[in-house]
């Protein structure tokens, strides 16, 4: 116990705290990039897959292949794939940006399926009805589809966001100094695991708890919005 207190005192240097903060920031950026970029691109992909025009067929097939492929490959393998893809293209990209690109790739594949399930909850004929009233595709999405798909999309989307924060730890495997990596550094420096990984645990909690609260609040609001 005494040793722990002593180590805690040792641990609380500005250097260590800064490292922890930096690692936390990297984890946050990695997850946020995957979630935001993944949601935007995933949404676009879901829209593409819902179109019916003949000339878009090749694009739809590519979309299906993309989604089915990256949902089946472990995140770690995707990291290596992206890493070597950049190398093959002769691009010297820092590992952090390799990891960011990977989270976007994965996020897009998963979240497009989440959004697609939301679209599927709106009957095809309601899209037709909107079309007969001359809504453009964007208007149909904004006024007819999204308001109804939202409640189907939000719960699994937030579940994905939260699990994604944890998955971003794999980026440490290609050398990105994010939270998990920072924990290992502390541990290697001879700090007690309880302190080394305890601090990391708290940092993960600080990042994900507000997000979980936001998700719960949104779900609550969605449930209320129909109870007029």
């Amino acid at each position: 116990m005494f040793r722990a207190l002593q180590q805690l005192h040792e641990f609380a240097t500005s250097y260590n705290l800064l490292l922890l903060l930096e690692g936390g920031a990297r984890t946050l950026v990695l997850s946020a990039a995957g979630c935001v970029c993944g949601f935007v691109l995933g949404f676009a992909l879901a829209v593409l897959r819902h179109t019916a025009a003949g000339w878009l067929l090749p694009a739809r097939i590519l979309g299906v292949v993309y989604v089915e492929m990256f949902r089946r490959i472990p995140f770690l393998v995707t990291l290596f794939l992206v890493f070597y893809a950049f190398q093959a293209l002769g691009l010297d990209v820092p590992v952090f940006w390799v990891a960011v690109a990977s989270t976007c790739v994965i996020g897009t594949a998963y979240l497009s399926e989440v959004v697609r399930a939301g679209f599927a909850a709106v009957p095809r004929a309601e899209w037709d009805a909107a079309a007969t009233m001359n809504f453009s595709l964007l208007q149909t999405l904004r006024f007819v589809v999204v308001p109804q798909a939202w409640r189907v999309v939000v719960p699994p989307a937030f579940a994905f966001f939260l699990s994604f924060i944890k998955d971003s730890a794999l980026a440490s495997q290609i050398g990105v100094v994010e939270l998990t990596f920072v924990g290992k550094i502390f541990n290697n420096r001879g700090l007690m695991p309880a302190i080394a990984f305890g601090s990391v645990l708290i940092a993960y909690f600080v990042i994900s708890y507000p997000l979980a609260r936001l998700g719960a609040r949104l779900e609550g609001r969605l449930a209320l919005s129909r109870a007029h």
């Binding site: 009957p123 004929a125 037709d128 009233m133 109804q148």
Partner: peptide, 23 residues
């Protein structure tokens, strides 16, 4: 349509007024 295809998230009035307002 055979199955009406009203927009289920909107009241009767909003279903009718949506397209005139937006389109």
């Amino acid at each position: 349509f055979q199955n009406f295809e009203l927009f289920r998230h909107l009241s009767a009035l909003d279903n009718i007024a949506l397209a005139p307002i937006r389109v």
